[in-house]
Design a protein around this nucleic acid. Structure first.
Length: 862
DNA sequence: ACCTGTGGCGAAACAC
DNA sequence: GTGTTTCGCCAC
């Protein structure tokens, strides 16, 4: 076991495999036009072409609607760095020189951020990426120490050549050059006013070019397929691809709306079925011809969009085509281990994109929280639904099938076009900022984006990118203890609220507290606990860490600048925009930045992040606690009454208006972090629970935080009562109305009590919907109710596993639970539901000094 | 197999 | 029975 663990730490990569895949020969010889002289075009993708052994940049020109291929002409090759001298390599590791992939070695001078001085390193250059890392006999495994040997080659190429994915370039005489970007004077002025330090202005200028450059409307095709399924509920296996593809829907943002149908089985067909459709229908007698037509269409677009194409649609098409006798070169689909791409342009899988936590939470405000399906996401974001499927696709009439299939492809495309191409713009902007190509960005979590952003800045400055273990060894571990068991370090302060109703509550908020802390306190891994610092070392009391103030920390610079650009420039530009389009654009920019800013502290506390630096994470929260404590003590000194606060917010009860500005200014002048009045509540209702309150704003809208009544896994009927209670509370305008509230809520509770007792509620109202975060077999420590229910469903042949949402009801039998699909109303354990209701309302009622028993009155239960 | 962090609540399962 | 752990979901 111990041995396994050790190996695990040393070789955590499956990057190895992906590096290997870069070596794989593309299955198809289709290429974009070779770029010799090309007008302004954007970088769609940067990859490694294994055939040519060169980096390949795919450019798209919106002016002539063409994809161009530009191959590296600078002789760039894969390499790694090592501290070993050439002499040492020759004497101790002579095998390196015999490696078939070995090219040559160079001596380089680099700045080493852990030593804060220049070092001499040896660069081992190879003929192909696989020789560096990715196979058992790669060079990196032959030497005891190396740097930068785990960076994917196409990323390394981006960093070294300073290529910005998603940005504009031209090609002149075969050379790729960055295109000029016009930056309006007013925007430039804002930056110069906001930033004083030269290094900030310089980087800001670079970034403004990325943020201001227009994002073209790239032509794209959404694809969705339907496969014949003999069994209901059984998703066809794309690896086996044993059943016919009976329908393919193709919807493009250039107006293409087409459904290709296979005439199959004994389903009668009549031409009238396809009259008055918003799409055209092509009928095929042969599945092979249907696929040929699909592939032809795919080759006409620089971007292919799917919803789950990586694991289903494109994988199925690929394998099915092979089975039908297509040669690999005839299939415009390239399979990689983790994803699927296309030979001409790029493939965006929206399922993967919308699954990215940071996108879900920050870009879309949690609107589709926890839901991953096309239906749920489309409904949440654009208010459109899939067509309800009343029977299996195999039993549908041709008309029904075409409608169903078309809608899916239409929704897939629509998810990229709504709100002026918001999603495409997000992808391209985030690519530009983080230097990760759209195809990678689309499928990787935010930590990979931040990693690339940081690596790019390292290479730009000729820094060695240090190894994770070296950072931890040099900077040390954490010194604080987390409140929650199993966590690595202490986090934020959450104040204990006193139960009650508070009228006229002002909420003050530190605008992006942690990024501000990182900026103001110069936090960055290379200057924390640094060597060679001398007098400029500032010790942070209580933690035993120090920060070297002699030089600007790289993380501090980058995170600080992202924050400043967002707050001082792009939020303002969005506010002052002269048109809706302009406002949309600037909002997209500032939202993209928010995504990166919000994750920029957390990654340094994540062991999986390659620049993992525990003291950096720990210092950030510690200073955050200090800032928060400082704000509380200033409030108290000014005679204000803080009643609650969480991490970066402070709730102040009924402050005299004339003190508000002074409070804000005093904090800003003492800790140097902006705090602002975020909102004012007519009243806030606190129970004794943290992260759990209800606030009514002056416009009558209600904020509900953390309460059971709004959780996803609360039964619908409880949510309904909860929302009716909210309506009652919304109307309350003073404490005197408390008696009214009590009467109304009492009546409500009695009504539902009655419904429960007489079993007048349907199963769907009683269903508790809980996600399976693991596969059923992986629940080894205990077996929660939703897992029990899932097991029963599985017995009935339902395809259920990680990611599925299980709907169950609580029953009176010994098991205590049954999936809704298998339960009857009379089996329901009404007592449990009364309890549920009671506990949900208790969270609200406690604030009002009410309790459930009183409200229910004399009516006996059960 | 996961892929930004910690703090917190509530229900149920498990350990004793 | 009580205390602890696990799990899901949420706040920030």
């Amino acid at each position: 076991m111990a041995r396994y663990e050790e190996e695990y730490v040393e070789e955590p990569e499956h990057e190895e495999v992906s590096e290997f895949e870069e070596e794989e020969v593309a299955g198809i010889s289709i290429e974009g036009e070779h770029a010799v002289d090309v007008g302004p075009s954007i970088v769609l993708s940067v990859t490694y072409d294994g055939n040519k052994g060169k980096a390949l940049v795919k450019l798209y020109s919106p002016y002539n609607d063409k994809v161009y291929f530009w191959y590296d002409n600078t002789g760039h090759k894969p390499y790694l760095l090592t501290s070993a001298t050439p002499e040492e390599l020759v004497s101790k590791h002579p095998n390196i020189f015999k490696h078939p992939g070995f090219d040559h070695i160079e001596i380089v001078r680099k700045f080493h951020p852990l030593e804060l001085r220049d070092v001499i390193a040896t660069r081992i250059v190879a003929k192909d990426p696989l020789a560096i890392g990715g196979s058992r006999n790669s060079i990196r495994n032959m030497i005891p120490q190396s740097w930068e040997s785990r960076i994917k080659y196409h990323h390394s190429y981006i960093f070294d050549r300073g290529i910005i994915p998603g940005a504009w370039y031209t090609v002149k005489g075969g050379n790729m050059e960055k295109a000029e970007v016009h930056i309006p004077d007013d925007v430039r002025g804002l930056v110069y006013d906001a930033l004083e330090r030269p290094e900030e202005r310089e980087l800001a200028h670079e970034w403004m070019e990325l943020l201001q450059a227009p994002i073209p409307n790239v032509r794209r095709l959404a694809i969705d397929i339907e496969v014949y399924t003999p069994m209901e509920n059984k998703v066809p296996d794309p690896e086996k691809a044993e059943y016919e593809v009976i329908s393919v829907a193709l919807v493009g943002n250039d107006g293409l709306r087409r459904v290709l149908l296979l005439v199959h089985g004994n389903m009668p067909i009549s031409p009238e079925e396809f009259l008055d459709k918003e799409y055209e229908v092509l009928l095929f007698e042969s599945e092979r011809e249907l696929l040929e037509e699909t592939f032809r269409a795919m080759l006409g677009y620089p971007i292919i969009v799917t919803f789950n194409g990586d694991s289903f649609d494109l994988a199925y098409l690929y394998n099915r085509a092979l089975q039908l006798g297509f040669r690999k070169e005839e299939i415009p689909i390239i399979r990689r281990r983790d994803y699927i791409t296309v030979p001409l342009g790029i493939h965006i899988d929206l399922y993967k994109f919308f699954s990215i936590k940071a996108i879900e939470v920050y870009a879309f405000g949690g609107k589709y929280r926890g839901e991953r399906g096309l239906d749920a996401i489309a409904q949440a974001l654009v208010g459109l639904e899939k067509i309800e499927r009343r029977r299996s696709v195999s039993e549908m009439s041709y008309g029904e099938l075409a409608d169903y299939n078309y809608r899916d492809a239409f929704l897939t495309l629509y998810l990229t076009t709504f709100n002026s191409d918001l999603v495409m713009r997000l992808i391209f902007l985030l690519s530009r900022i983080s230097k990760i190509p759209p195809e990678d960005l689309n499928r990787s979590q935010v930590s990979a984006w931040i990693r690339n952003m940081m690596y790019y800045e390292h290479r730009k400055r000729n820094w060695v990118i240090p190894n994770k273990e070296d950072i931890v060894n040099a900077k040390g571990q954490t010194r604080t203890h987390a409140i929650i068991k199993g966590k690595k370090y202490q986090g934020a302060i959450v104040l204990d609220p006193l139960p009650g109703i508070y009228f006229n509550v002002y909420v003050f908020d530190f605008a992006s507290l942690y990024p501000s802390v990182i900026k103001n306190w110069n936090l960055s891994y290379e200057v924390i606990n640094a060597p060679n610092c001398g007098d400029a070392r500032e010790h942070v009391p209580g933690l035993g860490h120090s920060v070297c103030m002699e030089r600007r920390g790289l993380t501090s610079l980058i995170v600080g600048l992202l924050r400043d650009l967002r707050v001082n420039i792009y939020k303002r530009l969005a506010k002052s925009a002269k048109s809706i389009e302009e406002k949309n654009y600037y909002d997209t920019v500032q939202n993209s930045m928010k995504v990166l800013i919000n994750a920029s502290y957390g990654v340094f506390g994540a062991e999986t992040f390659p620049l993992y630096c525990p003291p950096l994470a720990e210092l950030t929260t510690a200073i955050g606690r200090y800032v928060m404590g400082h704000a509380i003590s200033i409030a108290l000194k000014m005679g204000l009454v803080p009643i609650y606060g969480d991490t970066d917010s402070l709730f102040v009860w009924n402050p005299p208006k004339e003190l508000v500005d002074g409070f804000v200014q005093h904090i800003e002048s003492t800790v140097g972090i902006d705090i602002e009045l975020d909102k004012a509540y007519r009243y806030v209702a606190f129970s004794s629970r943290k992260k759990n309150y209800l606030g009514v704003l002056y416009d009558g809208s209600v904020d509900v935080k953390g309460m059971m009544g709004k959780k996803r896994n609360t039964p619908e009927f409880v949510k309904e009562i909860f929302s009716e209670v909210l309506d009652i509370l919304r109307a309350m305008d003073s404490v005197d109305r408390l008696e009214d509230v009590r009467t109304k809520i009492g009546a409500l509770v009695r009504r539902y009590d009655e419904l429960l007792r007489t079993r007048g509620l349907t199963l769907d109202k009683l269903a508790i919907k809980v996600s399976l975060n693991k596969d059923i077999e992986d629940y080894t420590k205990n077996k929660p109710q939703h897992v029990k229910a899932a097991e029963m469903l599985k017995k009935y042949g339902m395809d259920i596993g990680k990611g599925s949402v299980v709907a169950f009801v609580k029953t009176s039998d010994p098991n205590g639970v049954k999936p809704v699909q298998l339960a009857r109303v009379d089996e329901v354990d009404t007592k449990k539901y009364v309890e549920y209701l009671e506990n949900t309302l208790e969270q609200v009622l406690e604030a009002f000094g009410l309790n459930f028993e009183q409200l229910r009155g004399a009516v006996a239960l059960i």
